[in-house]
C-alpha cells in the first residue's frame, strides 16, 4: 500500500516550557501531518523529550497552543491525549516491571475496556467476554512484533532490546492514531535496530499510524522520516525534509560541535 500523507493532524504553536530557571523549550512551532513519520533531532538536552512530554500532557508548557485534530488547547492532559489516540514510548524504558509481557500489553488497552471493578470481581459474563476480546487483539500485536515466546515472562527479566520492543507493543495495543517514540533504538545493536526500523515502518504502513520519532542515529532518521525538526538549546533551528535539513548550515554547526 502506498502511503499517502494527509492533512495536518497536530499543530504546535509557540510552545515555551521552563523548569524553575531552566528553559527547556523556547517558542517552538511545528506541525505533524497525518500518516507521516516526523523526526525530532538535536543534541542531548536540546528539549526533544520535553517536546514529546508536552504533546501528550506529561509537561504543561507555560506558553503556546496545541491543536490536535482541530481541537485547540493551551496544554494537553495525559488522559485526554490517550483518549484522543496518542500513545508513546519512553527514552528510559517505562514498562510495568512486575507484570508479564501479556499484562503490559493488555494494560495498554485499558482505555478501551469498559467493565467496572464489580463486573471484574464477578468475572463470569461481561468481564470475561471483554477480556477475551481484547486478548485476541493483543495476540495480534504479539504476533506482529514476534514476541510470542515471551508473552508470559515478567518484563523485568527481559534483555534491554526486547523490553524496548515490548514497550512499543504496549503503545500499539492502544491502536493509536499517533505514536510518539522517544529514542526507540538507543542502546541497540545493529540487528535490533534493523528490526525496530522494520516495525516502525510496518506500523506506519499497515495501520497508517502517524509517528513522531526522536532518534540519534542520523542514518536511520534520514532513511525513514518524511520531515525532520531540529532542536538545539530548546530552540528550533531547522525544519524540513531530511535532505534540506542535512544541508542546513546551522544544523551542521550544531552537530559538528561549534558549542558544547
Amino acid at each position: 500500500m502506498a502511503r499517502k500523507i494527509g492533512e495536518v493532524i497536530l499543530d504546535l504553536r509557540h510552545i515555551s516550557l521552563s523548569f524553575g530557571g531552566v528553559k527547556a523549550l523556547t517558542d517552538i512551532s511545528f506541525d505533524v501531518r497525518e500518516h507521516e513519520i516526523r523526526a525530532i533531532i538535536g543534541p542531548n538536552g536540546a528539549g526533544k523529550s520535553s517536546m514529546l512530554n508536552v504533546i501528550n500532557g506529561v509537561y504543561r508548557p507555560q506558553q503556546g497552543e496545541i491543536i490536535f485534530q482541530g481541537e485547540h488547547r493551551k496544554d494537553m492532559d495525559t488522559h485526554a491525549a490517550a483518549a484522543a489516540g496518542i500513545a508513546r514510548t519512553f527514552q528510559n524504558i517505562a514498562l510495568f516491571k512486575g507484570m508479564t509481557v501479556l499484562d503490559n500489553l493488555m494494560t495498554g488497552r485499558n482505555l478501551k475496556m469498559r467493565c467496572n471493578f464489580l463486573q471484574h470481581a464477578l468475572w463470569w459474563g461481561p468481564a470475561q467476554r471483554e477480556e477475551l476480546e481484547h486478548r485476541r487483539k493483543v495476540e495480534e500485536i504479539i504476533d506482529f512484533l514476534e514476541i510470542e515466546h515471551i508473552r508470559k515472562t515478567p518484563v523485568g527479566r527481559l534483555p534491554y532490546g526486547l523490553q524496548k520492543r515490548v514497550e512499543l507493543g504496549r503503545a500499539l495495543a492502544a491502536e493509536p492514531k499517533m505514536l510518539l517514540l522517544d529514542e526507540p533504538m538507543a542502546g541497540m545493536n545493529v540487528e535490533e535496530k534493523q528490526d525496530m526500523c522494520r516495525f516502525i515502518l510496518d506500523v506506519n504502513d499497515q495501520f497508517g499510524t502517524t509517528i513522531v520519532l526522536i532518534e540519534h542515529d542520523m542514518g536511520v532518521v534520514m532513511d525513514i522520516s518524511d520531515r525532520v525538526v531540529v532542536l538545539d538549546y530548546g530552540r528550533k533551528i531547522a525544519d524540513g525534509t531530511p535532505d534540506e535539513v542535512k544541508n542546513d548550515p546551522e544544523v551542521i554547526a550544531a552537530y559538528l560541535g561549534t558549542q558544547h
Binding site: H79, R88, A94, F96, K97, M99, T107, N110, A174
Partner: peptide, 16 residues
C-alpha cells in the same frame, strides 16, 4: 499494578 510499577506510564496510557 501499572500505578505501582510506573505511575507516569500508567497515566500516559490513560489510567486515571
Amino acid at each position: 499494578m501499572a500505578v505501582r510499577d510506573m505511575d507516569v506510564a500508567a497515566e500516559v496510557i490513560g489510567i486515571r
